[in-house]
């Protein structure tokens, strides 16, 4: 299973800067799908090969043009030898990143990481109030799990407070991170926050909350209809649920995100058991899931 991170955010929010930073620093074999291949700007010495659609870097990373069909792009990533360790999809500046994130639920071989949405500290309130772009920007934030406020060095304290207030109004479940240059360490993009403050301009003390996890036993088979009922009942504080379980006699992989879920045949090598990731408001789920057994 390849972790998949979708990065959304309006034009100018810093998505490409973040992608450039991740590619240049390596650290992992990133596979990146981008909308605008021409905007990718890495040191020429890092480029091992490029054909205008795919760029392979000497640090093992690869960057590909998304093309018309995201599924095609993901399938091509998964088929690479060796496959990337983590795939990042840069959503279009006017796209809905949640629509893209749902692809990871049905595309075999991928597991959905937090939905990351970037916002420009100097521009977000005006974008939300603009009659042409307001609903687009609000929709991008609607399912965000990590909101990264960029360009904080260009905003004053009052502006920044306003940006926080607008995000909290639209998506209180999200973890909010501030940065000056969108050059975040990759650990900031996971559900698990970094163990110690990283040595960059990323401000770890601005994390508003961690994402608690719960383990749900899945040794006993679930009843198909009752499990579907339980999944339909999960509150918005449950952000993810994933793992292998028995559905009747079938051994399946379950992936859940924001009221949507998909079952696929379980890959070999994973033990039975589900993990839920949520906001601090997530209730104890054991009682609910006992209804499905």
């Amino acid at each position: 299973m390849i972790p998949l991170t979708v990065i959304g955010g309006f034009l100018g929010a810093g998505k490409t800067t973040l992608v450039n930073h991740l590619l240049a620093t390596g650290g992992k074999r990133w596979g990146v799908l981008v909308n605008d291949f021409g905007a990718i700007n890495v040191d020429a010495a890092l480029i091992a090969a490029s054909d205008g659609q795919t760029m392979a870097l000497t640090n093992g990373c690869v960057c590909c043009n998304m093309g018309d069909d995201l599924g095609d792009g993901l399938a091509a990533m998964a088929a690479r030898i060796p496959p990337p360790e983590h795939v990042i999809v840069e959503a279009s500046g006017v796209g809905d990143p949640w629509r893209i994130a749902q692809m990871a639920l049905i595309e075999p071989g991928f597991t959905l990481e937090p939905l990351v949405v970037l916002v420009d500290a100097t521009a977000l309130p005006a974008q939300l109030d603009d009659h042409w772009t307001g609903d687009t920007v609000a929709r991008q934030l609607a399912f965000a799990e990590i909101v990264v406020i960029t360009k904080i060095d260009l905003a004053d304290a009052a502006q920044l407070a306003m940006v926080h207030a607008r995000i909290a109004q639209l998506r209180p479940q999200a973890r909010v991170i501030e940065t000056a240059h969108a050059s975040l360490p990759e650990t900031a993009l996971g559900f698990t926050p970094p163990a110690r403050p990283p040595a960059s301009r990323f401000q770890a003390d601005e994390i508003t909350h961690a994402f608690p996890t719960q383990r749900i036993a899945a040794d006993q088979p679930f009843d198909r209809d009752r499990l579907r009922w339980v999944l339909g009942m999960l509150p918005a504080s449950v952000l993810r649920l994933k793992g292998v379980c028995l559905l009747g006699t079938d051994r399946v992989l379950l992936q859940y995100a924001a009221e949507r879920w998909a079952f696929s045949p379980a890959p070999n090598g994973l033990a039975n058991g589900l993990v839920a990731i949520g906001t601090p408001q997530m209730p104890d789920l054991e009682l609910l899931f006992s209804e499905a057994r």
Binding site: I106, R228, F263
Partner: peptide
């Protein structure tokens, strides 16, 4: 890989 147990848009 579409299953009746799944719930995606």
């Amino acid at each position: 890989g579409f299953s009746a147990d799944s719930n995606v848009d």
